[in-house]
Design a protein around this nucleic acid. Sequence first.
RNA 1: GGGGGUGCGCCACAGUUGGAGAGGUGGGCUGGACUGUAAAUCCAGUGUUUCGGCUGAGUAGGUUCGAAUCCUACCACCCCCA
Length: 376
Amino acid sequence: MFFELEHTLKNGSARAGTITTDHGQIQTPIFMPVGTAGTVKCVHQHELLDPIKAQIILGNTYHLYLRPGISILEEAGGLHRFNGWSGPILTDSGGYQVYSLAANRKIEEEGVTFRSHIDGSEHLFSPERSLEIQHYIGGDIIMAFDECPPYPSTREYTEKSMHLTHRWLDRCVEYQRKSAPKYGYQQHLFPIVQGGSFDDLRRQSCEYIAQQDQPGNAIGGLSVGEPIEDMYRITQLCCEILPQEKPRYLMGVGTPANLLECIERGVDMFDCVLPTRNARHGLIYTAEGIINLRNQKWANDHSPVDINSTSPYSRNHSKAYLRHLVHSKEALGGMICSVHNLSFFLWLVGQAREHILQDTFAAWKAEMLPKVSKRL
RNA sequence: GGGGGUGCGCCACAGUUGGAGAGGUGGGCUGGACUGUAAAUCCAGUGUUUCGGCUGAGUAGGUUCGAAUCCUACCACCCCCA
């Protein structure tokens, strides 16, 4: 069985479960570190295992396709062998780049023509091509090729885009049905719900996605600038429609507070660049609040970065030292902060899971929420 | 000891051939932003103010309607000669 739903909160929607892939199990709710170009930036694979305790990481089709290119990944025997991470991998389809590289692309029925940000060369991603590349990369979970409309978008555009994503999904499902596993292990396709901030479009999209009966489902098109209440409302709405017995993946979310709110609404999987990007910019998350290490107030603070961190670097080094590293733009600063933030995110979802299993989630969340959002 | 050169804002550099500029670029510093990674990136502020202004080009004088610019002295630093 791909997904085992172990427990759903009494008087709630939060769930704990286990996803089983050919590269290992994932205990949900889970946060998935983003490893765009074959590495979680600033973090070694060894540190992903310990102290971070990552259970699955992301790779990105757009970036890996452009560099190193699929032939090299095929030679290596897939991304797992190439980068030495033997746990589960999820690959994004390139759909997000359809959104983020807006200036350099053209969206048509067949697919998306875009220019490489590296050398300007022109390429076409279609649903079939995206899946083919993802098969070569070798992710355990692969994503349907979608369009992620910007915020704000008109209802008209969002609806058109949603239907295009649905038609592309049909092609993805068909391509997936016909293809054999490239490296001998299973690759599970997740469709993506779109529909912007429009409740009725979201309902329609959820129903369309659900009837495709794929192993898991993703909620896309959020955390693109919409008001936070929209994000929570749409997430809740989608979770109410998407099947209980399959994992729900909220793409691109989010802050620690976002994770708590969306776990409460029934999301099982998250990914976000925030912990790693902000780490490289000197911002770290702790159970007591958010620390901007660049702020002068930490210059003389010789106490541990975070005495309760699951990262030994954060327990053993001082805020003053870490601030110095960040300030001096020493690579080690970004590395320690990245390990710190991911350790915290994985700790947070691990705690959430424990409290769901014990039916103490609501009280724990109420206690954590104000703390994790606070600026120290 | 003699000769030459250069001095402005936290720093460096550039620029100013008598018509001001609280100016340029870079750095530093102080904040802010960052949500399926074109991001170890980007943005803003960085004399003072009661928001009208005020003070300001090493220091002190001078020439001039007007000086960062020309002159004199001094100070500091750099170079060359002894």
